[in-house]
Design a protein around this nucleic acid. Sequence first.
RNA 1: GCCCCCAUCGUCUAGUGGCCUAGGACGCCGGGUUCUCAUCCCGGUAACACGGGUUCGAACCCCGUUGGGGGUGCCA
Length: 499
Amino acid sequence: MTVRTRIAPSPTGAPHIGTAYIALFNYAFAKKNKGQFILRIEDTDQQRSTPESEQAIFDALRWVGMAWDEGPDSGGPMGPYRQSERMETYRQYGRELVDKGAAYPCFCTAERLNELRQKQMEDKATVGYDGHCAGLPSDEVARRIAAGEPHVIRMKVPSSGECIFKDRLRDEIRIPWAQVDHQVLLKSDGFPTYHLANVVDDHLMQITHVIRGEEWISSTPKHVLLYQLFGWQPPEFIHLPLLRNPDKSKLSKRKNPTSILYYQRAGFLPAAIRNYLGLMAYSLPDGREFFSLEDLVETFDIDRVSLGGPVFDVQKLQHFNAEYIRAMPPADLLKELKAWALNDEVWLKVLPLAQPRLEQLSDVMDKTSFLFTDRLRYEAAALIPGEMDGLEVAKLIKAAQWLLEVPGAWDTDTVRQVFERIAETKALKLKKLLPIFFVAMAGSTVALPLFDSMVLLGRDMVLRRLQYALDMLDETGVSLKGKTLKKFEKEFQSDYAGS
RNA sequence: GCCCCCAUCGUCUAGUGGCCUAGGACGCCGGGUUCUCAUCCCGGUAACACGGGUUCGAACCCCGUUGGGGGUGCCA
């Protein structure tokens, strides 16, 4: 049987560096075994999935060199590879389970479920569905469905015993069935949940090895049960340790840049990123620390994966990146620079902004350098206009960060609207508000037009610079963290509700 | 709370019972080369979480404790 692995990202935000990490191991394992590596888009969350995010995932994964053999864009024999296009399939398999008595319609409202959860937490009991709708008489079920009452399909789970499955890196894992919830398989909007879609697709797409993050270990029993119910051969499970922040928590954008696009924009080379990621939880058998993707594939041995969660250390990544840059002939470096940002296309966007401000050609670097750099140098005090205090500024920056990270269009109008909205909500003149952001984006209140600059910097770099600004304020003792942050979050939600 | 996973320098890791007075890399510190800086070279700092076993012998095997992480959603 040919080895087939997959990466299955959800298009709900910026393409995550952790996705690249998991993709790399899936890729290396598939290629080492002369198999195929598949990209599948898991867009079953209709609320949060966006086409922009999907496109960004394609671009980012391609950029880091994770060439997939089959995928939504390139097609393949077992498509479609976008779950929103496979609705009929999930519906059928969902019905099969209901017919078999392995799943049942559930009419419980969100309110009831919340109350239930609340109560269970108070009682310190295991949190989970109480089976309220599991025993509904079939005529009542038929009647309520016919009446168009919203419902989900839930999976029946044994109430005793334990699920035993094998993880290639950990050997046997045992989880009591009592710990496994009656998982929703089909949501009330007709979309499947991850659990159903992932099992159905992995089977239909003949995935032989599921290599994913260890956050999935606790829901693996649900998957194992589904394979059993369908009478399918489950794939081999291989759970990789999660990338961590310096404080060891799961890698998150608040504590570390996580968008692949940020790393691209900041001038990291794909080869260096691949190399560095290949060192996360892994080492080559011969101990080499510099290696190409081909080297990794050739010598790849998944059983060498180590299980301690690796801290993603940007400083070490930087070291590898530097080594790659220095090893390059200048002509190649020039090519990289052109591919990165120093090309006609970029300059033709930048120049219209700079041109009115040029007196000599030699002014051009001075006027535009902030658009090409990663970390800006400025004094934290520069962020704080005379009449404001630090915390006030931090809150404005945080609000902008929250408003700007919402996926969707990224153009001058969108950006402008965000700042107009902040100004309006806070009853501030735009003129008072913007200097903060000029400094955060350009390091100075004297710069090219702000909104256009932000569009050119790209969402990921903009969010990164806002984070830098917050970090700098933090260093001066302006702390928007913990309780203060929680409190502000509520404030923010009520301030910016609706509109 | 309950369930699961994990545990070697600050960080990434090598190490699968004797080769370990634990090796490499990043970082940090000191020195050298260089018109400056960076590079480069040399040196240094620093770890087997703890307690019990098993064994002639444990970083490596077993148990417990502690610590960290994840899960506990009509998110993935």
